[in-house]
Amino acid sequence: MSGAVGREPVFPTRQSLGLMKSKLKGAEIGHSLLKRKSEALTKRFREITRRIDEAKQKMGRVMQIAAFSLAEVSYAVGGDIGYQVQESAKQARFRVRAKQENVSGVLLPHFESYTQEGVNDFALTGLGKGGQQIQRCRETYARAVETLVELASLQTAFLILDEVIKVVNRRVNAIEHVIIPRTENTIKYINSELDELDREEFYRLKKVSGKKQRDVAAADAEIAAARQKEAEKKAQAGTPAQEAKEEEAESTDVLGEQEDNDVIF
Protein backbone atom coordinates (compact mmCIF):
# COMPACT_ATOMS: atom_id res chain seq x y z
CA MET A 1 0.00 0.00 0.00
CA SER A 2 2.83 2.34 0.81
CA GLY A 3 3.66 2.51 -2.87
CA ALA A 4 0.28 3.94 -3.70
CA VAL A 5 0.19 6.75 -1.17
CA GLY A 6 1.55 9.27 -3.64
CA ARG A 7 3.09 12.51 -2.55
CA GLU A 8 2.04 15.97 -1.61
CA PRO A 9 1.55 18.54 -4.35
CA VAL A 10 4.60 20.72 -3.74
CA PHE A 11 7.22 22.31 -5.90
CA PRO A 12 10.60 20.64 -5.57
CA THR A 13 12.42 23.49 -3.90
CA ARG A 14 14.79 23.61 -0.99
CA GLN A 15 12.24 25.48 1.05
CA SER A 16 9.58 22.83 0.67
CA LEU A 17 12.20 20.19 1.40
CA GLY A 18 12.79 21.86 4.74
CA LEU A 19 9.05 22.06 5.33
CA MET A 20 8.60 18.38 4.55
CA LYS A 21 11.45 17.40 6.80
CA SER A 22 9.96 19.26 9.74
CA LYS A 23 6.58 17.77 8.90
CA LEU A 24 8.03 14.28 8.96
CA LYS A 25 9.63 14.97 12.31
CA GLY A 26 6.33 16.26 13.67
CA ALA A 27 4.47 13.24 12.37
CA GLU A 28 6.94 10.89 14.01
CA ILE A 29 6.63 12.65 17.37
CA GLY A 30 2.85 12.65 17.08
CA HIS A 31 2.86 8.99 16.19
CA SER A 32 4.89 7.98 19.20
CA LEU A 33 2.76 10.13 21.51
CA LEU A 34 -0.50 8.75 20.17
CA LYS A 35 0.84 5.23 20.36
CA ARG A 36 1.66 5.76 24.00
CA LYS A 37 -1.77 7.20 24.64
CA SER A 38 -3.38 4.25 22.96
CA GLU A 39 -1.34 1.87 25.05
CA ALA A 40 -2.28 3.63 28.28
CA LEU A 41 -5.95 3.58 27.32
CA THR A 42 -5.84 -0.05 26.33
CA LYS A 43 -4.29 -0.96 29.65
CA ARG A 44 -7.08 0.85 31.40
CA PHE A 45 -9.60 -0.73 29.09
CA ARG A 46 -8.46 -4.24 29.90
CA GLU A 47 -8.63 -3.51 33.59
CA ILE A 48 -12.18 -2.22 33.22
CA THR A 49 -13.23 -5.23 31.19
CA ARG A 50 -11.93 -7.53 33.86
CA ARG A 51 -13.75 -5.58 36.52
CA ILE A 52 -16.96 -5.64 34.49
CA ASP A 53 -16.73 -9.38 34.27
CA GLU A 54 -16.27 -9.64 38.02
CA ALA A 55 -19.02 -7.12 38.76
CA LYS A 56 -21.46 -8.97 36.55
CA GLN A 57 -20.87 -12.16 38.50
CA LYS A 58 -21.27 -10.28 41.74
CA MET A 59 -24.46 -8.66 40.48
CA GLY A 60 -25.95 -12.09 39.81
CA ARG A 61 -25.33 -13.14 43.42
CA VAL A 62 -26.48 -9.88 44.94
CA MET A 63 -29.70 -9.80 42.96
CA GLN A 64 -30.42 -13.35 44.00
CA ILE A 65 -30.09 -12.46 47.64
CA ALA A 66 -32.25 -9.38 47.14
CA ALA A 67 -34.96 -11.37 45.38
CA PHE A 68 -34.92 -13.81 48.26
CA SER A 69 -35.41 -11.07 50.82
CA LEU A 70 -38.31 -9.75 48.78
CA ALA A 71 -39.86 -13.20 48.88
CA GLU A 72 -39.46 -13.09 52.65
CA VAL A 73 -41.34 -9.81 52.67
CA SER A 74 -44.27 -11.08 50.67
CA TYR A 75 -44.43 -14.09 52.97
CA ALA A 76 -44.40 -11.92 56.10
CA VAL A 77 -46.84 -9.36 54.79
CA GLY A 78 -49.01 -12.13 53.51
CA GLY A 79 -49.85 -10.47 50.26
CA ASP A 80 -48.47 -8.52 47.38
CA ILE A 81 -46.99 -5.18 48.29
CA GLY A 82 -45.97 -4.36 44.74
CA TYR A 83 -48.95 -2.23 43.94
CA GLN A 84 -48.71 -0.28 47.16
CA VAL A 85 -45.02 0.36 46.65
CA GLN A 86 -45.52 1.51 43.10
CA GLU A 87 -48.22 3.91 44.06
CA SER A 88 -46.37 5.42 46.97
CA ALA A 89 -43.14 6.07 45.08
CA LYS A 90 -42.87 9.82 44.66
CA GLN A 91 -39.36 11.14 45.16
CA ALA A 92 -36.18 9.30 44.48
CA ARG A 93 -34.26 8.74 47.65
CA PHE A 94 -31.48 6.84 46.01
CA ARG A 95 -29.67 9.01 43.50
CA VAL A 96 -26.40 9.02 41.66
CA ARG A 97 -23.87 11.73 41.15
CA ALA A 98 -21.52 11.76 38.20
CA LYS A 99 -17.85 12.44 38.77
CA GLN A 100 -15.07 12.61 36.28
CA GLU A 101 -11.84 10.82 36.09
CA ASN A 102 -9.10 11.79 33.69
CA VAL A 103 -7.30 8.96 31.92
CA SER A 104 -4.70 10.38 29.51
CA GLY A 105 -6.96 13.17 28.38
CA VAL A 106 -10.15 11.14 28.29
CA LEU A 107 -12.80 12.08 30.80
CA LEU A 108 -14.43 9.00 32.22
CA PRO A 109 -17.58 9.49 34.26
CA HIS A 110 -17.88 7.71 37.51
CA PHE A 111 -21.27 7.36 39.16
CA GLU A 112 -21.43 7.72 42.85
CA SER A 113 -24.57 6.73 44.68
CA TYR A 114 -25.93 8.75 47.54
CA THR A 115 -29.20 8.81 49.40
CA GLN A 116 -31.26 11.92 49.63
CA GLU A 117 -32.00 12.39 53.32
CA GLY A 118 -35.47 13.16 54.53
CA VAL A 119 -37.27 11.45 51.70
CA ASN A 120 -39.14 8.35 52.66
CA ASP A 121 -42.01 7.26 50.49
CA PHE A 122 -42.53 3.99 52.24
CA ALA A 123 -43.08 5.10 55.79
CA LEU A 124 -46.39 3.34 55.92
CA THR A 125 -45.48 0.26 53.94
CA GLY A 126 -45.59 -2.80 56.14
CA LEU A 127 -47.11 -0.88 58.98
CA GLY A 128 -49.49 -3.71 59.75
CA LYS A 129 -47.04 -6.53 59.65
CA GLY A 130 -43.72 -7.47 58.15
CA GLY A 131 -42.18 -4.08 58.84
CA GLN A 132 -38.92 -5.60 59.92
CA GLN A 133 -38.64 -7.73 56.82
CA ILE A 134 -39.40 -4.74 54.65
CA GLN A 135 -36.69 -2.76 56.39
CA ARG A 136 -34.21 -5.54 55.81
CA CYS A 137 -35.34 -5.91 52.22
CA ARG A 138 -34.81 -2.21 51.63
CA GLU A 139 -31.29 -2.43 52.94
CA THR A 140 -30.53 -5.44 50.83
CA TYR A 141 -31.87 -3.80 47.73
CA ALA A 142 -30.00 -0.59 48.47
CA ARG A 143 -26.78 -2.58 48.56
CA ALA A 144 -27.75 -4.34 45.35
CA VAL A 145 -28.41 -1.04 43.65
CA GLU A 146 -25.02 0.21 44.76
CA THR A 147 -23.44 -2.73 43.00
CA LEU A 148 -25.55 -1.97 39.97
CA VAL A 149 -24.47 1.66 39.96
CA GLU A 150 -20.84 0.63 40.16
CA LEU A 151 -21.38 -1.72 37.29
CA ALA A 152 -23.14 1.00 35.33
CA SER A 153 -20.21 3.37 35.72
CA LEU A 154 -17.81 0.65 34.66
CA GLN A 155 -19.97 -0.04 31.67
CA THR A 156 -20.14 3.63 30.70
CA ALA A 157 -16.38 3.91 31.03
CA PHE A 158 -16.10 0.81 28.90
CA LEU A 159 -18.22 2.29 26.12
CA ILE A 160 -16.42 5.63 26.14
CA LEU A 161 -12.97 4.05 26.24
CA ASP A 162 -13.92 1.71 23.43
CA GLU A 163 -14.87 4.65 21.26
CA VAL A 164 -11.78 6.69 22.16
CA ILE A 165 -9.40 3.79 21.61
CA LYS A 166 -10.88 3.22 18.18
CA VAL A 167 -10.36 6.88 17.28
CA VAL A 168 -6.79 6.94 18.63
CA ASN A 169 -5.87 3.74 16.85
CA ARG A 170 -7.29 5.07 13.65
CA ARG A 171 -5.11 8.15 13.99
CA VAL A 172 -2.03 6.10 14.81
CA ASN A 173 -2.60 3.96 11.75
CA ALA A 174 -3.29 6.94 9.55
CA ILE A 175 -0.01 8.56 10.58
CA GLU A 176 1.92 5.33 10.32
CA HIS A 177 0.59 4.15 7.00
CA VAL A 178 -0.39 7.29 5.14
CA ILE A 179 1.17 10.50 6.41
CA ILE A 180 4.69 9.28 7.14
CA PRO A 181 5.13 7.31 3.88
CA ARG A 182 3.65 10.16 1.89
CA THR A 183 5.97 12.70 3.47
CA GLU A 184 8.92 10.40 2.93
CA ASN A 185 7.88 10.01 -0.67
CA THR A 186 7.67 13.74 -1.07
CA ILE A 187 11.11 14.20 0.43
CA LYS A 188 12.50 11.57 -1.90
CA TYR A 189 10.83 13.26 -4.83
CA ILE A 190 12.17 16.68 -3.90
CA ASN A 191 15.66 15.26 -3.42
CA SER A 192 15.63 13.52 -6.77
CA GLU A 193 14.37 16.63 -8.49
CA LEU A 194 17.03 18.75 -6.82
CA ASP A 195 19.71 16.24 -7.83
CA GLU A 196 18.39 16.32 -11.34
CA LEU A 197 18.65 20.10 -11.36
CA ASP A 198 22.19 19.85 -10.03
CA ARG A 199 23.17 17.44 -12.75
CA GLU A 200 21.58 19.63 -15.37
CA GLU A 201 23.45 22.64 -14.10
CA PHE A 202 26.73 20.75 -14.04
CA TYR A 203 26.20 19.49 -17.55
CA ARG A 204 25.40 22.97 -18.74
CA LEU A 205 28.55 24.36 -17.17
CA LYS A 206 30.55 21.60 -18.72
CA LYS A 207 29.05 22.37 -22.08
CA VAL A 208 29.82 26.06 -21.73
CA SER A 209 33.41 25.48 -20.73
CA GLY A 210 33.82 22.95 -23.52
CA LYS A 211 32.54 25.49 -26.00
CA LYS A 212 34.93 28.10 -24.64
CA GLN A 213 37.83 25.73 -24.91
CA ARG A 214 36.92 24.92 -28.46
CA ASP A 215 36.70 28.60 -29.29
CA VAL A 216 40.07 29.29 -27.75
CA ALA A 217 41.61 26.38 -29.59
CA ALA A 218 40.14 27.61 -32.85
CA ALA A 219 41.42 31.12 -32.23
CA ASP A 220 44.89 29.75 -31.40
CA ALA A 221 44.90 27.69 -34.53
CA GLU A 222 43.95 30.75 -36.59
CA ILE A 223 46.68 32.84 -35.06
CA ALA A 224 49.19 30.08 -35.56
CA ALA A 225 48.14 29.70 -39.17
CA ALA A 226 48.38 33.45 -39.74
CA ARG A 227 51.86 33.56 -38.22
CA GLN A 228 52.98 30.68 -40.29
CA LYS A 229 51.69 32.40 -43.40
CA GLU A 230 53.51 35.56 -42.49
CA ALA A 231 56.66 33.65 -41.76
CA GLU A 232 56.42 31.97 -45.11
CA LYS A 233 55.91 35.35 -46.79
CA LYS A 234 58.94 36.77 -45.06
CA ALA A 235 61.00 33.78 -45.94
CA GLN A 236 60.09 34.28 -49.57
CA ALA A 237 60.62 38.05 -49.98
CA GLY A 238 62.22 39.16 -46.77
CA THR A 239 65.49 41.20 -46.60
CA PRO A 240 67.58 41.67 -43.43
CA ALA A 241 67.18 45.46 -43.65
CA GLN A 242 63.47 45.22 -43.69
CA GLU A 243 63.53 42.89 -40.71
CA ALA A 244 65.69 45.35 -38.78
CA LYS A 245 63.28 48.16 -39.58
CA GLU A 246 60.41 46.12 -38.42
CA GLU A 247 62.15 45.30 -35.21
CA GLU A 248 62.79 48.95 -34.58
CA ALA A 249 59.20 49.80 -35.26
CA GLU A 250 58.16 47.10 -32.80
CA SER A 251 60.42 48.45 -30.11
CA THR A 252 59.09 51.99 -30.59
CA ASP A 253 55.61 50.59 -30.34
CA VAL A 254 56.46 48.97 -27.06
CA LEU A 255 57.88 52.22 -25.77
CA GLY A 256 54.78 54.06 -26.82
CA GLU A 257 52.75 51.58 -24.89
CA GLN A 258 54.79 52.06 -21.78
CA GLU A 259 54.41 55.78 -22.09
CA ASP A 260 50.69 55.34 -22.27
CA ASN A 261 50.73 53.19 -19.16
CA ASP A 262 52.55 55.88 -17.28
CA VAL A 263 50.00 58.41 -18.37
CA ILE A 264 47.31 56.20 -17.01
CA PHE A 265 49.11 55.93 -13.72
Binding site: A66, A67, A89, A92, R93, F94, V119, A144, V145
Partner: peptide, 12 residues
Protein backbone atom coordinates in the same frame (compact mmCIF):
# COMPACT_ATOMS: atom_id res chain seq x y z
CA UNK B 1 -39.42 -3.21 40.25
CA UNK B 2 -40.86 -3.52 43.75
CA UNK B 3 -37.50 -4.34 45.21
CA UNK B 4 -35.73 -1.52 43.46
CA UNK B 5 -38.46 0.90 44.43
CA UNK B 6 -38.06 -0.18 48.02
CA UNK B 7 -34.41 0.72 47.72
CA UNK B 8 -35.63 4.19 46.88
CA UNK B 9 -35.04 4.75 43.22
CA UNK B 10 -38.65 5.50 42.37
CA UNK B 11 -39.34 8.99 41.12
CA UNK B 12 -42.44 10.62 39.74
Amino acid sequence: VTGLLLAGIGHV
